[in-house]
Each structure stands twice: as structure tokens, then as C-alpha cells.
Design a binder for these strands. Structure first.
Lengths: 223, 223, 223, 223
DNA sequence: CATGAATGAGAATTCATTCAT
DNA sequence: CATGAATGAATTCTCATTCAT
């Protein structure tokens, strides 16, 4: 069983009930925990992460951490939930009415920003995938798939109206995801080779430039 | 200490001396262990992996496994070493004298094959990156960087001679890596969305087609 | 690695920080552990001792013991530190201004008491020596050597002023140490031969008598 | 159970039967094993010693070592048996007809030589004592006790005939044992303080001189 | 006579979690 | 809201010993 739910923890007064109102300090501590957890889970995965380390990174005792979340898997689930929305948001903005090049460039830019601003979130997502996405399968097969199909339609329409060349939209989306995320997920490799990384603004501009140039114009010289 | 080297275990007559000659049975058992280890490490990373599980997957007792490798980190290192050569091989074949389109297409195809044939190796590599590449940094900064620089020259020459459009070669290489590996590393996502995957030959052909079309011709309609 | 230092264990909120203030319960548990550890280490040495057994003797679970000390070698070091002061204390009391016979007799008596009251401490010290004193070398070469040199001076002065015969002070000190400690360290032998032991008050008086008689008057009949 | 006998090892053709004739190579290997075992057992005691290490020190495989001795405790017992005779030998030479001073000086010298030549044997003996002499109790209570009683008689006769002062012979023997063995058993301490040790001939002469001077003449100045 | 292969019982830690305060 | 104390189930690794060759 990995990343699987554990029994709901007993006790009476935990602050995590459904829509339980939270005090300001609770809110702050939950946020600190989630941030620390993101850092750890993204590096080591669910099994490799240690509650101790999360607590330490969050600047509180392990006991106190467990007062807020009850169990390791609860923390994990909360982090994942936080993550998904942000991960999907950029694609949602793709506007069927906009100019294809502008829209896609904006999308790529947003994804690059995400890699720059939330590299750990990107890595956590990657980690889930590597493990077979045990906690995310339903999201992948549900909302994500639906969204991809919706946006694929947009791309197909653009192609039919001659505004872009006809390309398999799914693979195009995969390409955009892969190329933008790689700057976060494979950062050590990127940095070893280039000496810089997506966190650097100049580098990010250069990456955006190269990517959109390639995606829009391709490699073949114009006749 | 994660993924750090452990001292060679003192006890017993372990068969793993430097260039020690190996008997047939050793060869066989080591291979079984490495294969099982690849499966486990690629899913759970170094810390999340359990020696028990590797032993079970390899069909031997934990003690016997440790007779061959001495420690978890020794296994990990052996798996990584095995992996690197295969991972790098395709790029090495890129021939400066060949036709750019043919060469690059062949490269992409090889990388896709790798994702199809050794998805676990691909994921293990990804996992190392996510963790910050603790065991691989020197390889990244040494041989890998050198190879990338060598092949970047090739791309640059092609551009200078007008055979391809001038594109930042490093980012092009990153794009190829990312897009080909994503089919192995993010397989659950791919499958959730497309219902198929890189292991399927038709899918692989379609992916290759889409990728090379995009990379060579880009999205913009020809004037 | 024997008796070598281990890293402080990462996990949890161990109560053993540098000069961390200790609660009453911590004080009590640490004391129980140290006492049990003394018993085990003194019999079996560092390597031969089992943490399980120490925990059992201390009346607590192994986990709880490790909550207090983190590792076997940490316990060992704590026991040794506790031991050294007590072991050295008697020699410190040797007063240059006092009467040689009274001073030395008092010293011998204190050492015999130590053997009687803390035979396990004596044996632990012996055990460290047998192993080559891996954890104690610096103390031996530092504070202990200094103290011995200081007290050797005292003996030398006594000899120069004619109050005792001139004898190599170092070997005299070794003799006193050896003869007093043997009653604790070689207890089984002593008891097999005499049927009694240093724990017995009459025996102790007899030992003291014999020792001081020998040391002061020697074997040769007075002319 | 420590140092306790384990079940006799099965098999048929081991070379260790009662008076089984031994080939030259067997004889040589047994000797190498016993020597290596002495080194390890003397430092770490029975429990702390590892068969691996003994095998390595003896320059053979663990399997081969166990071919000769069958089990750890068998080796231990063999080493102890070897040891006892040598340890006792010096005392046996004490001649009732000889001159007390000459006889005792010779005895002390022999014991110091033993400490110099076989420090590991001395330490192994000490180790057994520290553990409560589980394997030696019967020897201590039998042959050793008898021998001590015999030689005590000698000392008593000497005292009765006025050749030495009347001193408790047992404690005198203990003193000689303790003081001579300390140079082997507590070698690290001796060396830390003096910078030399019993292995050094000059040091040994000095020790002998100091000891016999003290034992025969004592500390008090002659009137 | 000797070695390589294999194993199971231990032994030291690690780690998530519970409990009391 | 927070911490210290305690625990038991893993988990890695050790070690004496057995088996086959």
C-alpha cells in the first residue's frame, strides 16, 4: 500500500474537519506544513519522505504537526489537492477566440513560469507519475482528460480554419508539458549542462524564445 | 545519508571485488537483482525502495541478495551505472556527416524506443533528477555535458551551412529528451488521456510522426 | 567501526541536546539506562553488548531507550564519561603535605572501596583498555597523564626528603592501581581461590592490611 | 548463553577428533587460526569477536576455518585451553628449596616476560575474568586453586623459617599477578603515561627493578 | 582441503503514530 | 495549541552456520 489512506485518526478536536472554521494560527501552521511537505515529498516521494523532516522544515514538533494532519498520508493528500489546481490553471486560460500563436506562447510562458516559481510542485507531480499516480488516477482520467479533450478541440478548430498546420493536438500538448516541466523536473541536468536554470530570468526568456521558435517554425529552412 | 556510499560490508567472502571474475551463477544472480532493483527504485526512489521487495522480486532471500551487494546503496549505484550507458548511447550515434532530418529522426526514434523498451530505466533516471541527482552529478557535469557540447556543435554546423534553421542547440536537445522521455516517465497521464501508450507500436509510430512533424515543420502554416 | 561516534539520530525530538535542561523523568530514565549499560558493557565490552539487554535491564522498551540515547555508541560514551571522574577522584586526594604512609594507605583504601562498590565500573574501564582504549586514548594521554605526573612529583619529593625510600613513582602508581583493581576485575579468580571477595568487609580489611604491609615494609626481614 | 558450547557439528570427516592424526598442513592451519583467534578474542571477548575477522586474520576463508573448528565456541575453547598451561607454567617453577628472593624475582621476571611476549594471551585471560569466567570456572576452582595452595605453603614455610616476613601468601600472589599482568592488560594506559611499554627491554628491566625493590624492601626507610 | 552460495536468527536503528500532560 | 514520552512495526544490515561442489 503506498500513499494509501490510513484509518481516520480518532481523537475529537482536530482542526481539520470538513468546513471547520480555522483560527489564524491554524491557517498559518497548515500553510507552513504544506509548504514543508511539498519540499520533502517532491524530492523523496511518498514513501521516501519522513514526517520528522517535514516537521523540522515547518519549524514545529512532530507531535504538533500530527495534531494538524493526523497522518502522513493526510498531509500528502492535502499537498496533492493544493497542487492540482495550480498545475491545471494555465491550460484553462487557452482562449479559442484568441490568436493561436499568441495563445500558445502565453500558455508556454505560463508553464515556464510555473516551473520557475513552483519547481517543487512540478517535481511532486512528476513523482506521483513515476509511482504510477496512485493518488491521482481519478483526476487524470476525469477532469484532466476532459480538459485536454476540450482544448484539443480548440487546436483542431484552429487547424481546420488554417490558422495552424494540422498536428495531433494531444501530442502537441504533451510536448508543451514535457518541454516546460523538464526545466523544473530535470533541473540538475539542465544546470550541469548550461550552468544556469529556469529560475534565472534571462535563461527563462531564452528558453521561451527557443521553444516557441521551434514549435511555430520548426527546423526546416523555409524554401 | 541518502544514496550515499556505504562501506563495503566486512563480513564474509562477498563476490564483488573490483574486477573480480564472476562465476556464471553470480552473473545470473546479479542480473536478477539489478533488474528487480530497477523496478523498485524507479517507482519509489532510493529512500522509498525496500530491500525486501527487491529481494522478493528477484526471487531470492534478502540475505542472499545482501551476499551479492552488501548494501542498498551499493545496489543503487550498480543500477545507475548500468543505466547511464544505455541512456546516453542514442545521442552518441548522431552523425555530423548525415542528413539532419534523417539523423534527428533516427535519434528521436531511438529515444522513443528506449522509453518503450526500458520505461523503468527512464523513470529511475527521472527519479535521480528529482532528488537532485546526488549520485549522478559528476556524470552530468562531466561526460554528459561534454557529449552535449559535442553534439551542439554538430547542430550549429548544420545551421551555419543552412541545412537547418538556427536554433539554440541545447534547448533543442532538451526538447527532444523531454518529449521522448515523457512517454515513459508520465505514462499514467499519457494513458489516462489517450487510452494507449508508448509500448504500443501504433502509438509509438504516431508519436514519432507527430514529434518529427512538429520539430521539423512547426505549427505555422507555410506562407 | 567499533565504539566510534555515530551521527546524532535525525528523527524525532530527542531530549539530549548539548546542555539541554532535563526534566525529572529524563534524569531518572537516563540514570537507569546508564546503570544498566554499565552492567552490560562491563561484562561484554562494546561489541559484545546488546542494546536489547540494556533496555531490558533498565526496565524499558528498546525504542524508549533509543529515544533517550539514539545509538549504542552514544550510551557507551555517556557511561565512560560518567566513569572517568569517579575513577580518577581518589588519586586527586593525595595530599603532598600529608604523611606519606597515611596518604598512601588512604589512597589504597579508597581504591579498594571503589573496587568493592563499583566493580562494574572497574571492569568497564578494564574492558576499554583491553580493546586498546579506542574511546579513552585522549583522556589517558591528557588529563590522566598530567595527574600522574603531578602526583609522581609528590612521591619524588617525599623520597628526596627521606620520608620514603626512592622508588620509581610511576611503577608504584601502576602497582597500586593493578593490585586494587584486580579484586574487581579478576573477581572470579579471587573468589575461586579464596572463597570470598572484596565485597566482603573482612576480606577488604585483610586485603588492605596485606597490601599496605607489603608496600610499606616489603618482604625482606628487617636486619 | 555466552561462550557456551553449541551443538557438536555434524559432518563426518572433520580433523578435530580426539587424538586424530593431523597432517602437516592441518597442523599449520590450526595454529594460524588459533593465533588469529587469540588476537580477536583478546580484544573483543567472546561475543564481540567475529568469525569473519578471525578467518581474515588467519588468511583463509571463513568456510575453511569452520572446516577446522566447526563453531565459534570451539575455537574459543581451543584458544583458552592453549592459554591456560602457559599462563600457569611460571608459578609451577617456584622452588621451595630455592632462595626466596631469587625464586620470587625469577617468578616476577617470567610473568613480565609473559606479558611482553604474549600480551594477547594475557588480555584474553583478563577478558574471560571480566565476563565472569564462564569457561574457566572449573579450572580456577580446581587446578589453579590447588596450585596456589601448594605455593602458598611454600611462602608460609619461608616465613616460618624467617626467610621472609610473614605476609598473607594469597594476597602476595595476587599482587604479583596483578602488577605483572597490568603491563599487558592495561598497555594503552601504561603507554599513554610512560611513552613506552613492556615490549621494550629497557622498560621491562626498569619495571622488574621497581617491582622487586618494592616487594622486597617496601617503601619505609630503614631505620 | 578449500571455496562459493545460501540462509535464518539476530541486532541496531528508523519511523509513523499514540498517549499523557 | 503544543510538547515530551513512549511504543511497535518495519527496515537495513550482521553473523554464525550449513550446503553443495
Amino acid at each position: 500500500m503506498e500513499a494509501g489512506p490510513t484509518r481516520a485518526h480518532a481523537g475529537g478536536s482536530e482542526p481539520d474537519g470538513e468546513g471547520a472554521p480555522r483560527t489564524r494560527i491554524q491557517e498559518k501552521n497548515r500553510a507552513r506544513i504544506l509548504e514543508a511537505a511539498l519540499g520533502t515529498f517532491s524530492r523523496f516521494g511518498y514513501r521516501g519522505a519522513r514526517v520528522d523532516q517535514i516537521a523540522e522544515d515547518a519549524g514545529m514538533s512532530k507531535s504538533n504537526l500530527l495534531y494538524y494532519f493526523g497522518s502522513k498520508s493526510e498531509i500528502y493528500k492535502a499537498v496533492l489537492a493544493d497542487l492540482l489546481d495550480r498545475w491545471l490553471a494555465p491550460l484553462r486560460t487557452l482562449d479559442p477566440e484568441g490568436d493561436p500563436r499568441a495563445e500558445l506562447t502565453a500558455y508556454i510562458e505560463q508553464k515556464l513560469r510555473f516551473s520557475a516559481d513552483y519547481p517543487e510542485a512540478s517535481r511532486l507531480f512528476a513523482n506521483e507519475m513515476l509511482q504510477g499516480a496512485p493518488m491521482m488516477l481519478d483526476v487524470l482520467e476525469g477532469p484532466l482528460k476532459a480538459l485536454v479533450e476540450e482544448k484539443s478541440q480548440v487546436l483542431r478548430h484552429w487547424a481546420e480554419s488554417g490558422r495552424i498546420r494540422p498536428v495531433d493536438p494531444t501530442h502537441l500538448i504533451f510536448l508543451i508539458w514535457a518541454t516546460t516541466q523538464t526545466y523544473a523536473d530535470f533541473a540538475p541536468q539542465i544546470e550541469a549542462i548550461t550552468g544556469s536554470g529556469i529560475h534565472d530570468e534571462a535563461f527563462r526568456r531564452q528558453a521561451l524564445q527557443s521553444l516557441s521558435d521551434l514549435i511555430f517554425s520548426g527546423l526546416l529552412p523555409r524554401a
